[in-house]
Each structure stands twice: as C-alpha cells, then as structure tokens.
Design a protein around this nucleic acid. Structure first.
Length: 278
DNA sequence: AGTCAAACCTGGGCGC
DNA sequence: TGCGCCCAGGTTTGAC
C-alpha cells in the first residue's frame, strides 16, 4: 500500500501540485467520515464553518500544509506518517481510509486519505496559530532566509543530545524527518550519535550546507516515494533513487564501500556508514 | 528540568 | 496457506 513519509520535501511537492488547482475554488461542503482527525474546532463547527469558504492560497511551514481561506481562516493539515491529499473527479472510486472529502464546485474533490489515522486537521484564524503548539514552536525553514550559517552555529552549539535527536527536533529546524535526517548526516560525514555541542566550526558549516543541499535536492526530485506514493495529482516522487543510506542496511556505501549499518538512535532507526561518518 | 518510553494506528514482512 | 507477532514512524503525553 501507500508507503512514504511526508517530510518537508513531500509536503512542498503536494503544495505545488495542488496550488493552481485549488486557488479560487470555493469549498462547497465537507464530508467527515472520521471526525477524530479534526483537532480544532469541534467536528461540527469545522463542517459548518468551512462551507462556502474560498481557497485563496496554499502555503507550508515545516511539515504543515496551510490552506488559506477568506475571512482570515486557515485550514491546516499535518499528514504525519501516511496522510495523503488527493485532487480527483468526484466520481472517482473512494480509496480505503478516506476520512475527509472537500467538495469543490468544478465537480472535483479534495480528499484526505490516511491509513494510520495519525494525520490531523485544524481550522483556525491566522491569529490563533499559537493554539497549534507544534506549528507555533516550529524552528526556521531550512531553505528560508533567516536560517543562516551564523544562526545555525549559534543554535546547534547550545543543543544537548546527539545530532539525530537535534535534526528531528522541529523547534530546532522545521520539516526534517527520519529519511532526510539520515541522508543529511551521511552527506555531512557526521555520525548520528555525535553530541551536537562537540562539532567543530568546520563540521557545523558542513552540516548546515548538507541540510540545505539534501532538502533542496529532494524537492527538486518531487520527494521520496516508496511503493506507490503519489502527490496530489497522482505523480510519484523520484528522490528514492538518490538515497545513500536510508533503508540501505547491508549495502555498500557509495563513497567507500563499507557496509551501511542500522542502529536505533533517539528511538528511531538510523542508517549510516560507520567509516565515512564520525 | 530533562530524558525516555508509551501511545496512537494499519499493513507488510517474518517465523513457524 | 495462514496465523500471530513485531515493526515502521511524527508527535504528544505521561512517567521516572
């Protein structure tokens, strides 16, 4: 079945694929088949408030997708592990695990599908973003202008814990999950268990540039697909062809030929080259 | 306060 | 062939 992790590059790919389709359309109504996915407001208020609202823009912060509506309202999606957003004709057969259906006036649907039911929806005013703690406490966008080598060095030198933990911490930098954390650490030649505060200036610099390089490359490749993940228009990503360590346990390192190892770090499976990453 | 594990879920993959 | 078990993973929550 669908298997992928929606990290920043995947959510950005979904945003880009849906933006021109949705802007200017009015949400006629919403069918909520699994009410618990709506965290704010109540499912009843959610259904009532969203009807008749016009989609003005699609934005993204970290792994959150922000659908900006009129009246200052924002429909916020977090896809967690298996959430999908599909834009399709209303007549298309309903996929299993379709939990919310947004009906559009052009005869299309925007459907939220999520096998594991972890994904969450919110409908809030922009001024109430602070009510969504995970969104409010997000760190800088890795490709944003305020994520600079200087701010990065300052921030990471103060962090306790190892590099894997720090990269997965959304308040340190937004949007990195398990796949890209491992790929970033390989690209920078740093071991996932390396304490963050022990990096030399040169290593800090390398890590900073690897974060930007890996995330940008994954966006350029339209995200990473395992099995049959597709974006909002049914197009698969291509970055899985470029992965160096994630799910490559026992395969030779592309750089030195040593076998890629897997180890549990920070409660997550971590893949790395024991020779290249120090 | 800071670290860690459990909880939420389903389906794939494994051993027997 | 099929059953039962374990695992994946982001984030929040609760325990020590």
């Amino acid at each position: 079945m669908e298997s992928y992790l929606p990290e920043l590059p995947e959510v950005e790919t979904i945003r880009r694929s849906l933006r021109s389709k949705l802007i200017g359309q009015t949400i006629t109504s919403v069918q909520l088949h699994l009410p618990k996915i709506v965290k704010m407001p109540s499912p009843e208020a959610f259904i009532e408030t969203i009807a008749g609202k016009e989609i003005q823009d699609l934005d993204r912060r970290g792994k959150y997708l922000l659908v900006r509506l009129n009246d200052g309202l924002v429909l916020v999606f977090h896809l967690r592990m298996t959430g999908q957003l599909l834009y399709c004709p209303a007549a298309d057969p309903m996929a299993k695990h379709t939990h919310a259906i947004f009906e559009l006036p052009n005869g299309y649907h925007l459907r939220f599908v999520d096998m594991r039911q972890f994904g969450t929806l919110y409908l809030v005013k922009e001024e109430d973003f602070a009510l969504i703690k995970g969104l409010w406490t997000l760190g800088p966008e890795p490709l944003g202008a305020d994520f600079t080598p200087e701010s990065f060095r300052k921030s990471i030198s103060k962090r306790k814990g190892n590099l894997k933990q720090v990269l997965l911490n959304q308040s340190f930098v937004a949007g990195i999950g398990n796949i890209y954390a491992d790929e970033i650490l390989f690209a920078s030649g740093l071991h996932p268990e390396r304490p963050a505060h022990t990096l030399s200036e040169e290593e800090q610099e390398r890590l900073y540039h690897s974060i930007r390089k890996v995330i940008q490359a994954a966006i350029d490749h339209r995200g990473t697909s395992f099995r049959n993940y597709v974006d909002g228009q049914g197009v698969a990503g291509g970055h899985q062809l470029y992965l160096q360590v994630y799910r490559k346990t026992g395969k030779p390192c592309q750089s030195c030929g040593e076998y890629i190892q897997r180890k549990r770090v920070a409660g997550r499976s971590s893949h790395f080259c024991p020779r290249c990453q120090k």
